[in-house]
Design a protein around this nucleic acid. Structure first.
Lengths: 335, 335
DNA sequence: TAGTATGATGTAAGCGCTTTCATTTATAGC
DNA sequence: GCTATAAATGAAAGCGCTTACATCATACTA
């Protein structure tokens, strides 16, 4: 691999000049610039980004921590971030946190040690305090899907409470009065917020929620199945089920079908997230859209604006979820 | 951030010694090592990996190029690679190639310029020659889901032809004789191989394939729907459909249902890949398992063994696909 | 025309590490 | 106790860049 030194030699200029044309901000005369460019071309020169980083103390890469690399949710998010960064000539370094505190911290440490210029974090297990402390250091941090009041500007989040409200409201509007709720792990803030939204809608419609119709799962489809079994086993009738995410909804739907319940005729189901799979399952899932790709893109923009001085960008911190009506929920009269 | 210099000062030793204890291969006395370790601890020292890379010419990171960051297939693959690398203390740098030649080349260049120690590529658009030339340079390369005879050792691939064969064989065993085939883009080698496997099975059962019952899609579910429309519009009867991947199968199934065809009673469908969604769609999809996660893991192992000298690892280059029977294909007699 | 901005380029000192080679110190042999 | 050998440590030269700061040429001011 050719180095800057060889380029400078071939072009008959100094290292500094070559460096200047690379970072094309400094004033270099047109003729010199062309000479250098030609030399680079001829040598097939590519700057060594490691050396650049060391010297400039900027790595042009942003660190991303997600819980998992697989799964429709994170994929969409990564894709959004990567697209936006790539277009701006920045790069991404990705680590997985597996929703465990130690692993998340470890991932963050790793990203820091790779000299990322900023971090985009989707963390679930570390505490607010840890994040506040982290953000108070000199590593810029943006959080996705988490809202911490002290770090409000650094948070790109969804109004999960509203989402939970909308899901339930839809069913209430359709005339359902006996609703079950399948929650995510309540220690996760999004799971809790969604549940709160549910309660708010219920209250607004003058209904009291029967705690026996609450099941807490872990956001996986298998737990959706398990929770559904539990719910049905209780023998308390319900005509509608709100699930805290699509995957659990899919698991629940499967069990419902196996037990001879028709969706939506016998049971209306609403999910949350609007994953790709919501379109694939049968009947197609009515759900709450979680614009995670767009939010990833926004997190990237936050970094571009605040760290890489792309002033023109417009930022938006809180996204509003939207109801997506498909076939899994229907009016009780029509059912 | 503390530097090695401050550690050496605090420990009362030279830079070199600190460096030695970090790369704990050199001979350092037990007492000195402990002094240094204590100093590191006290300062909260973390080595600057950029500087390490520059000095050692190794970055301890492996570059990965996938077509897309989202989608169930790549997610699984990335996850497999990341897990394996992380466990070995290596890290991944990820870029997307978007199935376009220019973009793939660009991504590869980027990874090279980031001083990756090796590259794991899932490329579709670049030519065999390009890859052969690339591999002949000094950047180690391993290819996933692609087989190039000259690079056989560097390829981790699936026997796609066998997969195509198995899918079709299953339907033939079930008594179907009128089969349609929905192919992927024929310029992609996996699409072609799968189709060839189909033809082989047909031939083996003494059936000639009716070219009118071949549709070529693009591996997306929307094209599965479109192809299904085309196939049905021709008015040529068929009782079974082999799809070159699950997503197209899902699209096709949707159209079939919309047209009043029951799956599998009126039409048996077999997919390919065994994505998560295969379990979600209704009826559950009979398909060919593509162990992409395992293959990603194997690619990572290839790198660990060949580049990072973990000699003990066992490698396997070609994976065999396996039929996964679910509910979307049934015997013609029973139908 | 000397005096001074101003623009273009060069010089050289790092960035935080690794690694070779030289030097010092401990261990052993006799 | 003195040398021969091995083990532990230090000194210093980079790795390929960026970036003050210095220098030089040119253009402009009065």
């Amino acid at each position: 691999m050719a180095t800057i030194y060889q380029v400078s030699e071939l072009a008959g200029v100094s290292l500094a000049t070559v460096s200047r044309v690379m970072n094309n901000n400094a004033r270099v005369s047109e003729t010199t610039r062309n000479k250098v460019l030609a030399a680079m071309e001829q040598l097939g020169y590519r700057p060594n980004s490691i050396a650049q980083s060391l010297a400039s103390n900027r790595s042009n890469s942003v660190g991303i921590l997600v819980s998992e690399l697989h799964g429709p949710f994170y994929g969409e998010m990564l894709s959004g971030i990567e697209n936006e960064c790539r277009a701006a000539g920045k790069h991404v370094i990705i680590a997985a946190g597996h929703s465990e505190e130690a692993s998340e911290k470890d991932g963050i440490e790793f990203l820091i040690s790779r000299s990322c210029d900023a971090l985009i974090l989707h963390v679930e297990a570390v505490s607010d305090n840890y994040l506040i402390k982290l953000a108070s250091g000199n590593m810029p941090v943006v959080l996705i899907n988490r809202f911490i009041p002290q770090l409000a500007d650094n948070c790109i989040s969804l109004d999960n409470e509203l989402g939970g409200y909308l899901a339930t409201q839809k069913l209430l509007q359709q005339g359902h009065t006996q609703l079950a709720y399948m929650a995510g792990p309540m220690w996760k803030s999004d799971a809790k917020d969604r549940y709160n939204g549910h309660l708010r809608a219920m209250a607004e419609y003058g209904l009291s929620f029967n705690p026996a119709l609450l099941a807490e799962g872990d956001f996986q489809d298998s737990s959706g199945s398990a929770c559904m079994q539990q719910l049905l086993a209780k023998g308390i009738p319900f005509t509608a089920l709100v699930c805290a995410n699509d995957e659990m909804a899919a698991g629940a739907m499967e069990v419902a079908r196996a037990q001879g319940l028709n969706v939506p005729q016998d049971l209306s189901i609403v999910g949350f997230d609007n994953l790709i799979l919501a379109r694939y399952i049968y009947p197609k899932l009515t759900t709450i859209d979680y614009p995670i790709g767009e939010m990833g893109r926004m997190a990237a923009r936050w970094v571009l604006k605040n760290i890489y001085q792309q002033q023109a960008l417009q930022l938006k911190n809180v996204f509003q979820p939207v109801l997506v009506c498909r076939d899994s929920a229907s009016s009780i009269a029509a059912g």
